[in-house]
Design a protein around this nucleic acid. Structure first.
Lengths: 231, 231, 231, 231
DNA sequence: CATGAATGAGAATTCATTCAT
DNA sequence: TATGAATGAATTCTCATTCAT
């Protein structure tokens, strides 16, 4: 009776927890997982070191939650896209686009999440999410195959090529931005997400393809930006 | 060069340096970058801790050299393949195959090199090599385009899709193997590199295909392996 | 006394206090003093952490009270025995027996109370009680001397030998049981309290004794069990 | 060859290790196990914190070694006495005496070693040594029984009574001295080891006596010291 | 050149105690 | 009174790097 948690109190706990995760994210944005020290997280969140342990039993748990939060959001977006009742080709493009756009927004974070693991246990979470991302792309591909849109045989590998292609394409630009810390990071030219997306989409639809009529009926700007190098 | 006195001494130096790098590699194979501690490297190499610093000014330099050595070998193989005077399609397949086969041989090491960085400065080396790998694949693609074999527009993105696709496809299996340390790691079924290679090749040549006549003139087993799941 | 308002409130206070002590005892039984953390005690007692401090100004005070409660009970029993209007020899045996039997009942607790101090201030309480136990045994001895039953000169040392002998005899078995936590503690054979009691009694009455006619007129099982080793 | 350890270097290692143990002992003498913090030990030994870990993998290992060193010395002395080719009665008295004398010399240390455990793993070492001490006393008793000097049936319990009696007799005085830290500890009157030894010996030889012809030929003051309280 | 003991600045974690609500 | 989140000092352990020998 006297002990019953009120929504208020409950939200206070949840809020502190949330604040800690956000603090960790902020630190990652600043300098990668390396910056995520328990005391730094506490300070960033406006709490004491000990308080962190009221919400997370260990650093690993905090890191895992951070990963889950960030990657989970991405995954959710991708899942929603994969479920849209539109042609698989459109969903595929939308998925690729969503992924690339978000990564461009916050390169440091995207890089850390996608490619810069720390803790061995967080690695497992990362593997899980990579598998999940692959699964969602594969869902799109499978439904496309079922609808006769695609005729690819191995959708698992194709999904990996798509997801891996995005990540790898972003890796250079992301990494360059990510590693530029104290330096005039803002001075760097943001890489062109549109060109990347179009390139991946083109590859998906035609492979190294003989035919390769540049995607003419696409709603987006149609010509000439895909071949540009940017580094 | 400042140190060279006699060829003998020079080679002794070089040999010790080599031994240190190999010791680090052995440690990585055993448990990832995490195991690479300066004193452990020294012990593994049969030297004293202090001796390591006679060859590498800092841990970062050692790690970078390790990365260079390992990735450099891979890159060299890929470069040789890219230079072969055979059709681009053949070189592409050979390149993909070389990469996948080697990774399967030593998953722990491959995983560490491809996806498990430690030091921020090693990151730069890693980025460099990823770019280089992409460049070599791109070389193949470009020559294929020049020869009329391929008609892809954005060879940079295509190369990233190919390289990223391989890495991503391997990530699950590699990661699973890599993370399984004390556990019955040997019990795990080694993933099938052939299926992976075929899948990537198929995706390269047909994209998500419409046409998709299963690659009939390929020398490898022609049917039915591409769709198999392996996890 | 400053806090008493109504008997009801007073008893509520007393009850909570009692509950806290019992909670601490439960924790000790589970894993020794080490387990007695203020928040754990609170949880065990169904109270809040802060509430503990409404009853005990500090952890030391709580621990002291726990010690007093537990050792006090033992001491009370021993005191009652010491006051019985029976021959000193009978009281001595009864006292030894009472002590050993209770320790066997709850080895973990007995071990913690007798031999596993934590807080330096609790040490004082422990010393006090050890002195008190010695005093009670000495009372028995002194009255035996007065009655002509015993002719020992230094009853203080004799009492210490008796009390210390019991504790030391129990120490091995108790410690073994006490330290065996997760392990198959139940699998351990409970040491034989009867043999121990008889052994101590025999030593008390005859020392290393020339004469040593096994205690024949004792009401308990008369022969042959005293010499058995049990470990 | 270049790597061969010279006796000098070897002794340097051993010496540092020894110095650390002695530093820990010094801290115990000052304030019990509580004072034994790794950094404090390092400072006391004139080393850095990290250096401690070059010699002991963990605090527990250091503590265990400290215990072993201290208790081992005591045990060695007792063992030597137990092996003397003299009547068991003489050895018994000598053993008791050795133990008591040494404890009186350094009460704080004796108290910590005998009765103030810290680490759960050190507890095991303590149990081991208590068992060993008991064994040595028992050896004396057994040989006495074999020689017809004693007729006690349960030498195990008798040994425990003797050892426990000494410890318990010392506990009060030791504890009092031990707990008096900042206070004028030196001002305390050292308890009389001789009386204690005589008392224990008397109890061993006569039990609570009937016969009890006061030990007349003892060189020490014959009368009146046994009943005195000293605290 | 080689050695390996020593350094010492961190980083994670614990827990008695406090205090705003 | 009661709560329980928050505090923060204390402590163990790590490891790249240095330096006297």
């Amino acid at each position: 009776m006297a002990y019953q948690r009120t929504p208020y109190v409950e939200s206070k706990r949840a809020e502190a927890r949330q604040r800690l995760v956000q603090a960790a994210v902020a630190l990652i944005e600043r300098g990668g997982w390396r910056e995520v020290q328990m005391s730094a997280v506490a300070t960033e969140a406006g709490l004491s070191t000990g308080a962190v342990y009221l919400h997370f039993p260990s650093k690993t748990d905090l890191l895992a939650e951070v990963y889950r939060t960030q990657a989970g959001t991405e995954l959710h977006v991708l899942t929603l896209i994969a479920e849209q009742p539109v042609p698989a080709a459109d969903r595929l493009r939308a998925g690729i686009n969503a992924f690339a756009q978000r990564a461009m927004k916050n390169p440091r974070l995207a890089y850390a999440i996608a490619l810069e693991p720390t803790d061995i246990d967080v690695e497992e979470v990362r593997l899980h999410f990579h598998r999940e991302f692959g699964m969602q792309f594969r869902r799109i591909l499978d439904s496309g195959v079922a609808a006769g849109e695609f005729t690819i045989a191995d959708t698992r590998v194709a999904a990996a090529c798509i997801f891996g292609g995005i990540v790898e394409s972003l890796m250079g630009p992301l990494g360059a931005t990510a590693l530029a810390r104290g330096k005039a990071a803002s001075a760097r030219r943001q890489p062109d997400a549109t060109a990347l997306v179009d390139g991946v989409v083109a590859f998906c639809f035609h492979g190294l393809g003989k035919p390769a009529p540049r995607n003419p009926p696409t709603k987006r700007r149609a010509v000439g930006r895909s071949g540009r190098a940017k580094d």
